[in-house]
């Protein structure tokens, strides 16, 4: 019996019970309290963070929806305000990128190409989503073409990092080459765009026309 007492420390004489507990608590109590406290903080903090980001995402989504509606009804200023809110307060959500893209379009609508370029550059260089980066690059190339900066447009459209936008990049490159009067190269680019085109795309006819046009002019030169 005594052997067991010593070994397991469970069977204790009645009088000693309270005393022993007190000693044990004195020795380990701090640890338990601290442990539970850290645990509560940790778990609570984690859950709290989850709830917080979830709520942020939801309100960003609402603002985004508003922005789309304003844009659709032609309320440029209001759409632009919503986009600014998304950029300022919700840059970390994916709506931030989309807001920049919207700003770029609205700026172009107002004829302000340099603002459009700035917004697109922002997404191109800073987005966490590589696809958004590629897409912004593509659009930047289009805007550069619009602005007549053919060299930079060409540079932007020529890249290996095209993700799933192979067809789109080739088409923009073709557009740039057309503007540079390099017709045969343009025809080739349009050809590549056609080959990579998604089967359901509504752009096949136009792309084919562009290719044929570039080829004709190229051959007649």
């Amino acid at each position: 019996m005594a052997e067991n007492d010593k070994l397991l420390g469970v069977h204790i004489a009645e009088d000693d019970d309270a005393q022993r507990l007190r000693v044990w608590w004195k020795k380990n109590g701090m640890g338990i309290v601290a442990g539970v406290a850290i645990g509560i903080l940790g778990v609570g903090g984690f859950k709290g963070w989850q709830v917080y980001t979830e709520n942020r995402a939801l309100s960003a989504s609402d603002v985004f929806q508003e922005m789309l509606a304003y844009d659709e009804s032609g309320a440029i200023e209001r759409a632009s305000n919503s986009a600014q809110i998304l950029i300022k307060d919700y840059r970390a959500t994916p709506y931030g990128d989309l807001a920049y893209l919207m700003i770029a379009k609205l700026a172009k609508q107002k004829g302000d190409l340099s603002n459009a370029m700035e917004a697109l550059t922002n997404v191109m260089t800073k987005s966490k989503d590589p696809a958004m980066g590629q897409l912004a690059r593509l659009r930047l190339s289009q805007v550069k073409l619009l602005a007549g900066d053919l060299e930079r447009a060409h540079e932007l459209a020529t890249t290996d990092d095209v993700g799933g936008f192979e067809s789109e990049f080739s088409e923009v490159l073709g557009d740039v080459l057309l503007a540079q009067h390099k017709y045969s190269d343009a025809a080739e680019a349009f050809d590549r765009a056609l080959q990579a085109l998604a089967p359901a795309s509504s752009s096949r006819a136009l792309l084919t026309s562009k290719r044929n046009y570039a080829r004709s002019v190229g051959n007649n030169q």
Binding site: A131, Q134, L135, G164, S167, E168, A198, S201
Partner: peptide, 22 residues
Amino acid sequence: KILSSRRGGEMVIGWRQGLRKV
């Protein structure tokens, strides 16, 4: 409409392809 769907909505297909690629 053709142009903006090419440059807009249809991009989602490319976006999906990009996901799949990597």
